[in-house]
Amino acid sequence: MGFLSVLTMAQRWVAENAPPGSVAIDATAGGGVDTLFLARTVGPSGRVYAFDVQQEALEATKLRLKAASEEDEKAAALGENRKKRPRQPLAPVTLLRAGHQRMAELIGPEHRGRVRAVMFNLGYFPAAGEEGRKLITLTETTLAALEAAMGLLSPGGIITIVVYPGHEGGGEEASAVAAWSAGLPSSAAQSVVYRFQQKPDAPYLIAIQKR
């Protein structure tokens, strides 16, 4: 059995640090994979915020959440008939068409300092096709978003960042994120890198846990 993918590892670390009832943020909603994961992880007593600058991404995320809720409802009905335990409902999700660098401004004040997980999946929104590939996350706004995320986290909260050095501009962004995370004072946070060493252009994961 091989090692877990970087996306699966990011989800594992988040699940270990964001119990039910937590507040969580998907900083790059894209197609909604991480948004759905967070909504299921923190459950109906939690809260999820999802950011993206593309309306298409937010619509895709909304559809993914709707389909998952409908599937859960069908499974719950079958579960009752078969005496199986149904899945708990998803957390309420707030979709925000805004750059993730604005999260400190747009997250509800009641949730500031209480966020348990922030997930970043950098690069571009694949479902948008070739035009979408031109609209990528940028080093400057990504670093600003990471600083904002640190301010929103509760002690013990985690940030996961999947970086993509293989596309144009991605190598610069990945290096900047790695340097930023390595430069955090150990008294403020601990940082780790999860990477497949023989594939230098493959995506890799950086994670930060706030002390």
Rank of each mutant, 00 (worst) to 15 (best):
G2F: 15
L4W: 12
L7H: 15
L7C: 13
W13F: 12
A15N: 11
A15W: 05
E16G: 06
N17C: 14
P19N: 11
P20V: 11
I25V: 15
D26F: 01
A27K: 05
T28D: 05
A29L: 04
G32W: 02
D34G: 03
T35Y: 00
L36F: 00
L38T: 13
A39P: 10
T41S: 12
T41K: 11
G46K: 05
R47A: 08
Y49E: 11
F51M: 06
F51T: 01
V53I: 12
V53D: 04
A57D: 14
A60P: 09
K62M: 11
A68L: 04
D72E: 13
E73T: 10
A76Y: 11
L78P: 05
E80C: 00
N81K: 15
N81G: 15
R82I: 11
P86Q: 03
R87C: 10
L96N: 06
L96V: 12
R102C: 07
M103H: 02
A104I: 14
E105R: 13
L106F: 01
L106Q: 02
I107A: 10
P109L: 07
E110P: 03
R112C: 08
G113W: 02
G113V: 10
R114F: 02
G123S: 04
P126S: 08
E130Q: 15
E130N: 14
G132W: 01
I136D: 00
I136T: 08
T139A: 10
T139C: 06
T142S: 13
T142D: 12
L143S: 03
L143T: 02
L143I: 02
A145W: 02
L146P: 00
M150H: 04
G151Q: 13
P155Q: 04
I161C: 14
I161V: 15
I161Y: 06
V162T: 15
V163D: 06
G166D: 03
G166V: 00
H167Q: 04
G170A: 11
E173I: 06
E173N: 09
A176T: 00
A176Y: 08
V177A: 00
A179S: 13
A179Q: 13
A179M: 10
S181E: 08
L184A: 10
S186Q: 12
S186G: 15
S187N: 05
Q190S: 13
V192S: 08
V193I: 09
Y194A: 09
R195M: 01
F196C: 13
K199V: 08
P200D: 08
P200C: 04
A202T: 08
A202H: 10
A202N: 14
Y204I: 10
L205R: 11
L205N: 11
L205A: 08
I206F: 05
I206K: 09
I206V: 15
I208F: 07
